[in-house]
Design a protein around this nucleic acid. Structure first.
Length: 197
DNA sequence: CAAGTGATTAGC
DNA sequence: CTAATCACTTGC
């Protein structure tokens, strides 16, 4: 069953980032086959106050506009000339918080993901934010999609306990001063699809 | 370890 | 308009 709007509207972004671990990300193909994967790594971006967030200081540009949408909206951006990144917008409208999905573990129709990724070892299929977008077929047209729609959504899958979750610094945001140190990255302990140890 | 890639952004 | 930067991946 799809996660309901209330899941995304809570005002505790860090809690939502942890709650997303173990959820199933589903992206049906044109032929309506379920391609899905379990979320195993996330990073919280706390909007206006977070120097690492694109929406720091409530910066509103054509790109960041999506972050100001209501919780449950998909925010996609393009990076390093070749990769897309998949984010879940959370909180009320005009509160530009988002959670980056950094890694997932393939669950349904793995062979479709393997085909999209070319010849890659199993553990390299979806073990990074750019990789998982390729495997799941996510690109720029998913930007601004509603997670309660038919194109992409999240479902309950596995229930984790606090002991299953590790946290640490976020990746690739050294420019963010003291915010680079915040332990706002979360992952499933010992899962081999997590992007970095 | 460093190149590759092009949208996005700030600054003129 | 121009130039620097970037929430990354891969193959050397």
């Amino acid at each position: 069953m799809k996660l309901e709007r209330e899941f995304y509207l809570r005002d505790d972004t860090i809690q939502i980032a942890k709650d997303l671990l173990g959820k199933l990300l589903v992206v049906p193909t044109a032929a309506n086959e379920r391609v899905s994967a379990m979320i195993v790594e996330t990073e919280a971006y706390l909007g206006a106050i977070d120097k690492a967030a694109h929406s720091y200081g409530n910066r509103r540009t054509k790109r960041t506009e999506t972050m100001f949408a209501i919780g449950g909206t998909v925010y996609i951006f393009f990076i390093y000339g070749m990769y897309f990144q998949f984010n879940v917008v959370v909180g009320e409208k005009d509160s530009p918080h988002a959670i980056l999905i950094r890694a997932v573990e393939p669950v349904e129709n793995c062979e479709i993901m393997r085909q999209r990724r070319g010849k890659m070892p199993e553990k390299n299929l979806t073990s990074g934010p750019g990789k998982l977008c390729i495997a799941l077929g996510i690109d720029k047209i998913f930007n601004n999609e509603d997670l309660l729609g038919e194109k992409v959504w999240l479902e309950d899958y596995k229930t984790l306990s606090a002991g299953d979750i590790s946290s640490g610094r976020r990746v690739g945001i050294d420019y963010a001063g003291e915010f680079a140190e915040k332990p706002w990255r979360f992952w499933v302990k010992d899962n081999k699809f997590v992007s970095r140890k």
